[in-house]
Design a protein around this nucleic acid. Structure first.
Length: 322
DNA sequence: TACACGTGGCG
DNA sequence: TCGCCAAGTGT
């Protein structure tokens, strides 16, 4: 934007161009087929937090098949919810989702929140998610700001915003009659066109208003931690020995994994794995279960119903047990 | 406020 | 190959 044409003055034209583009180019995602179903949209929004659409699709379908309503979700055990969530990461999301479902059923008679503030009060629902659900399902005139919206606004205006300025800018641009579609169109644009690296400016519906036209934002590099880890793979017929992470441990509490061991001899498997900002060089050794480890023999076929850590799933798949 | 929290795919 | 990153939230 030039200094003489602030986004606010151009907002109507920008909205129209953006929504027109969205109507033509949006991806046919399953939760977009039922925008009035707040339970569906809620599940999708939680799954999509810091998670790519492609990674969430399978889990979304399986989750709704297993927990088709907020009552079904509230009825389930946390372990069952985590088992379906297994592989998606950020497991606290699943715990908070489950807790929120219990609150809705126990304290509100199973009736989903009817406004943004009520959504915001539930665990796992912050400013972004409350606004997303309220705008999509309740037609509330409230804008969202996520990583996509931040990048789009930053490039479109050429300005640097403080966090509150970002929310204000998004709300100034919001299409008042289609808030849910507008919010999704901003994120869709960020995901498909105005991407972090090499944005497709030639295809951008906002090109004519854009101040930067593809300037990429400076990115800070974060040093990653590197560690090594060794796991013991003990098998008895079709069963494998798994141990449960302690519940007082915040990281993946209560989830199941192979027991750790001391590296000795030649591993039967080597692989790399990353969690958050730690890179792990993993070795897996054939072994007998240690007497001290609290665990159990699990049939490989039953392991899929346990809340396994992502690394454990990866190992079991790699050795052909899953 | 800065940091912890998972994972798989892509350039 | 490997570093970067994706529809955030809670503390």
């Amino acid at each position: 934007m030039s200094a003489r044409s602030p986004v606010r003055e151009q907002a109507p034209a920008i909205r129209r161009a953006l929504l027109r583009w969205y109507d033509a180019h949006q991806r046919p995602l399953p939760w977009r087929r039922t925008p009035a179903n707040a339970y569906h949209v809620w599940i999708s929004e939680i799954m999509l937090q810091q998670t790519r659409v492609a990674a969430a699709l399978d889990h979304y379908r399986r989750f709704l098949k297993k927990f088709s309503s907020v009552r079904a979700l509230a009825r389930a055990s946390e372990a069952d919810v985590l088992a379906v969530w297994s592989g998606l990461g950020y497991y606290r999301r699943a715990r908070m989702l489950h807790a929120a479902a219990s609150t809705i059923v126990n304290d509100h008679g199973g009736r989903l929140p009817q406004n943004e503030g009520q959504w915001r009060a539930l665990p796992g629902i912050g400013r972004y998610t409350a606004a997303a659900i309220a705008s999509i399902c309740l037609h509330a005139r409230t804008a969202v700001v996520d990583g996509n919206v931040e990048r789009v606004l930053h490039r479109l205006t050429g300005k640097r915003f403080r966090p509150e300025g970002l929310w204000k800018a998004a709300n100034d641009l919001l299409a008042p009659r289609r808030p849910g579609d507008f919010n999704q169109s901003m994120m869709e644009l960020g995901a498909l066109v105005c991407t972090p690296k090499s944005p497709a400016c030639k295809e951008c519906p906002l090109f004519r208003w854009c101040a930067t036209r593809g300037e990429h934002r400076a990115q800070r590099k974060e040093s990653r931690r590197r560690i090594v880890a060794a796991y013991a793979l003990a098998q008895r017929k079709d069963r494998v020995w798994l141990v449960q992470r302690p519940y007082d441990h915040s990281l993946m509490a209560g989830m199941w994994e192979l027991p750790e061991t001391v590296a000795r001899g030649e591993p039967c498997l080597r692989l790399k794995h990353s969690i958050t900002n730690t890179d792990i060089a993993v070795s897996v050794f054939r072994a007998r279960p240690a007497r001290s480890s609290r665990g159990k023999w699990v049939r490989a076929a039953d392991a899929v119903d346990l809340p396994l850590t992502g690394l454990t799933r990866k190992i079991l798949r790699r050795v052909g047990l899953l």
